[in-house]
Measured scan of single mutants.
Amino acid sequence: SLTLTVRGEEAVRRWYKWAQAHNLEVEVETHGDEYVLHIK
Rank of each mutant, 00 (worst) to 15 (best):
T30W: 09
N23W: 05
A19W: 02
V12C: 13
E25H: 13
V12E: 02
W18A: 01
R13T: 09
R13K: 13
E9N: 06
L4I: 15
D33V: 06
H22R: 10
R13S: 08
H22W: 07
S1M: 13
T5I: 15
G32R: 04
V26D: 00
H38E: 03
A21K: 11
A21F: 12
E29A: 07
E10V: 08
S1A: 11
G32N: 06
A21I: 11
V36E: 03
S1K: 12
K17A: 15
R14D: 06
H38G: 02
V6T: 02
A11V: 07
S1T: 15
K40H: 14
E10I: 08
T30H: 13
Y16N: 05
T5R: 15
N23K: 08
V36F: 06
V28Y: 06
K17W: 10
T30E: 14
V28N: 02
G8S: 15
V28H: 04
V6D: 01
L4D: 01
K40M: 10
V28S: 03
T5Y: 07
E29Q: 09
G32H: 05
A21T: 09
Y16E: 12
A19E: 00
V12Y: 14
D33T: 07
S1E: 14
V28M: 10
G8I: 03
W15H: 02
G8L: 04
T3V: 11
E10R: 10
G32V: 04
R7Q: 11
H38S: 07
L37M: 06
K17S: 10
Q20N: 08
H38Y: 11
L4R: 04
T5D: 02
V12I: 08
K17V: 11
G32W: 03
Y16W: 11
E34I: 15
T30K: 15
Y16I: 15
V28T: 06
T3M: 08
A11E: 12
A21R: 09
E27A: 10
H22T: 02
E25F: 13
L37N: 00
E34Y: 15
H31M: 11
E27F: 13
E25V: 14
W18F: 05
N23E: 07
T3E: 06
R13G: 06
V6M: 03
V6I: 09
Y16G: 03
H38D: 02
Q20A: 13
G8C: 07
R7M: 10
L37S: 00
W18M: 02
E25D: 10
V12R: 05
R7K: 13
I39L: 07
V28W: 07
E34T: 14
L37F: 04
E27N: 09
A21N: 08
K40Y: 15
L4A: 04
R7H: 12
L24W: 12
H22F: 07
A11Y: 06
L24N: 02
V28C: 11
H31K: 14
E9L: 15
K17M: 13
K40R: 14
S1W: 14
R14K: 12
I39G: 00
E10F: 07
L24G: 02
E27Y: 14
V12M: 15
L2P: 04
Y16Q: 15
E10C: 12
S1L: 12
K40V: 08
T3W: 07
L24T: 02
V28A: 04
V36M: 06
V36L: 08
T5E: 04
Y35M: 05
V36Y: 06
E27C: 13
E27G: 05
A11L: 09
H22K: 06
G32T: 04
A21E: 14
R13H: 09
E34A: 10
E25N: 10
I39C: 11
L24P: 00
V26S: 01
Q20D: 06
H31I: 12
G32C: 04
S1G: 14
W18R: 01
A11D: 07
D33P: 05
Y16L: 15
E34Q: 11
R13L: 12
H22I: 03
V28E: 03
L2E: 03
E10A: 13
A19R: 00
T5Q: 07
E34M: 15
H22L: 10
Y35Q: 03
R14L: 12
E29G: 04
K40D: 04
W15M: 05
E29T: 12
V36G: 01
G32P: 04
H31A: 09
L4S: 02
H22E: 04
W15F: 08
E27K: 11
D33K: 06
E10M: 09
V12P: 01
V26E: 00
R7E: 05
I39H: 01
K17R: 12
Q20I: 14
V26G: 01
E34R: 11
E10K: 10
W15S: 01
E29Y: 11
E29C: 11
H22G: 02
W18G: 00
E27L: 13
V26N: 00
R14G: 07
L2K: 05
R14F: 15
V28I: 14
N23G: 15
R14Q: 12
G8R: 03
S1D: 13
E10T: 08
A19Q: 01
E34P: 02
E9R: 11
Y16S: 09
Y16K: 15
T30Q: 15
I39F: 14
L4W: 04
D33H: 07
Y35V: 06
V6H: 01
V6R: 01
A11R: 05
A11F: 05
L2Q: 05
E34F: 15
V36S: 03
R14T: 07
V6E: 02
L24F: 14
V36H: 06
E27S: 13
E9I: 15
T30C: 12
